[in-house]
Design a protein around this nucleic acid. Structure first.
Ligand SMILES: [Mn+2]
Ligand SMILES: [Mn+2]
Ligand SMILES: [Mn+2]
Ligand SMILES: [Mn+2]
Lengths: 220, 220
DNA sequence: TTATAAAATTAAGTTTACTTAAAAAATGAA
DNA sequence: TTCATTTTTTAAGTAAACTTAATTTTATAA
């Protein structure tokens, strides 16, 4: 299935929502893709006709098996590029997403596989997101919990939900990354903000930010 | 100047012709770019209006200073990508051109500079073509001659004019590359074909092929 | 010089990926 | 349950980058 950049981004957006059990509604997609709601309806009808999504008027769209395959491959491209840009070319965590988006769609399978080999078949990208293999198979799912849903204690960052511009600035500023150890001190009753410590430095982060940081309990 | 992939490829095509003192006529561009002559006229008018080329009806187009700047940057992208794909990702000499063409246009200046640094500021791509620096300055021009314009003797390949599909197959099959030493034995009077030796293996190559192999005399 | 071929242009149309504006449908709080 | 807000759709239109077909201009060779 030959697909354009726009189609791949559209399907990948749906995938990213579905994988987190969120509905792929018109406005959501419009805002994620930075296009008008009308453009979403437009594209939805086209892709439904190609059997890539299920679409019924006034309902959120859903990937078909065929559409999922395309979305997984698009994610594979995106995440391999991110990994490559970070590991090899030393681009920072907040730059790789944008740069990858620019190139990914025009990457051939050949080049992609060479890159994967060069990187030694990574299972996760620098944000901790899983990279599908060339058959679209994801590595075994890891069971992280959002930091804000935990009780005080020591945690290791396993994954960061970077893919939203608002959040980008924060993580860039503070350089949180996969592998970091965080000490959750307490969650404020008032606004649900979190008091945390990293490398002995204390800081308060909003509940929203904390919900993007997926962690594992560390036995300390 | 923000330019689309189509515009960059168009300007680069003109540049590649001009740099070899060839005219950028409509049919030539159409065939190089694989588009119709009508599309060439179309684009020519558009770019002339933007001050990127000089265009007069029924005459070959010419790059303006502004257009040359864009073309040089497009070449820079193309050749850095080719170098990168070859050196780092081990893609073969005949694959890099196509792969580079797919990605190059969407490469940010940032990424490009990181790549250049990673590659240690190469002056030439794997075909021997010069890479403009970030200010559009080319390395000092090397004075090669087409193999077919030489007399019998020993020569080293300095550059290969790969960028045409017909020739691709030949070079792929025989793996000629920059740096190789060739012994020119004789040029046949009849058809101007060349009898050459490489690693003690003799072969006859057409004059056309030989004209794409640029060489330096080797004192043997 | 003139006919013919080659090259370039013009005209009209297509596809993709959007846009804005208005209308319709769904949702949800009073 | 109704009315206001939100969401989605419809309608109409745009810009880029093409296409084909017909026409015009230029080049060239007899
Ligand atoms: Mn990303
Ligand atoms: Mn990622
Ligand atoms: Mn090339
Ligand atoms: Mn090259």
């Amino acid at each position: 299935m030959k697909t354009s950049p726009a189609v791949e981004k559209f399907l990948r957006s749906i995938y990213l929502l579905e994988v987190r059990n969120q509905k792929a509604s018109g406005i959501t997609l419009a805002s994620k893709l930075n296009i008008s709601p009308a453009a979403v309806t437009d594209m939805a009808i086209k892709l439904a006709n190609k059997g890539l999504i299920k679409y019924q008027k006034h309902q959120s769209v859903k990937l078909t098996t065929k559409g999922l395959k395309v979305a997984l491959n698009a994610s594979r491209k995106h995440r391999l590029w991110e990994t490559f840009l970070h590991k090899t070319l030393k681009l920072s965590l907040d730059e790789i997403h944008i740069e990858a988006e620019l190139i990914e769609s025009n990457t051939s399978t050949k080049l992609l596989n060479m890159m994967e080999e060069y990187l030694n078949f990574p299972e996760h990208d620098p944000h901790g997101d899983p990279i599908p293999d060339k058959n679209g198979i994801l590595p075994e799912k890891q069971k992280f919990t959002p930091l804000n849903e935990n009780i005080p204690g020591s945690y290791q960052i396993g994954r960061i939900h970077f893919e939203s511009n608002e959040i980008n600035d924060f993580f860039t500023e503070y350089e949180f990354k996969v592998g970091d150890i965080l000490e959750l001190v307490l969650i404020f009753k008032m606004d649900n903000a979190l008091l945390i410590k990293r490398n002995k430095v204390s800081m308060v982060i909003s509940n929203n930010i904390a919900s993007r940081i997926l962690v594992n309990k560390v036995i300390s």
